[in-house]
Amino acid sequence: MVETIINDRVIERVSEIARLKLSDKEKEKFREEFERILEEFSIIDEIKVGEKELYYVVENVNVLRKDSKPKPFNNINSIKTNFNKIEDDFIVVPRNL
């Protein structure tokens, strides 16, 4: 059994944290699906696991580059053309307060 009960309040919070608005219909649909999916996934409790958490399969983490100045990206305008709203050299966003 999934001991984590996904109720309306949890779905509400998840949708808020994920910055993803959901309709009431979607909330109900996803709530039901998530319970079903996690119920099936709780089979992982059967695996004998050690303490090691494997985030990455490679051993060569934290590779440092040579201490020299990298070549800067110079095609700045092609980045700017993708901005949705631009004023002078700034991206326009709605007010935050």
Binding site: L38, F41, I44, I47, G50, E51, L54
Partner: peptide
């Protein structure tokens, strides 16, 4: 309950 558990199990597969 979920994410950390999966990472440990991933090591078992490896």
């Amino acid at each position: 309950r979920w994410y950390t558990k999966a990472l440990k199990a991933r090591n078992a597969i490896k």
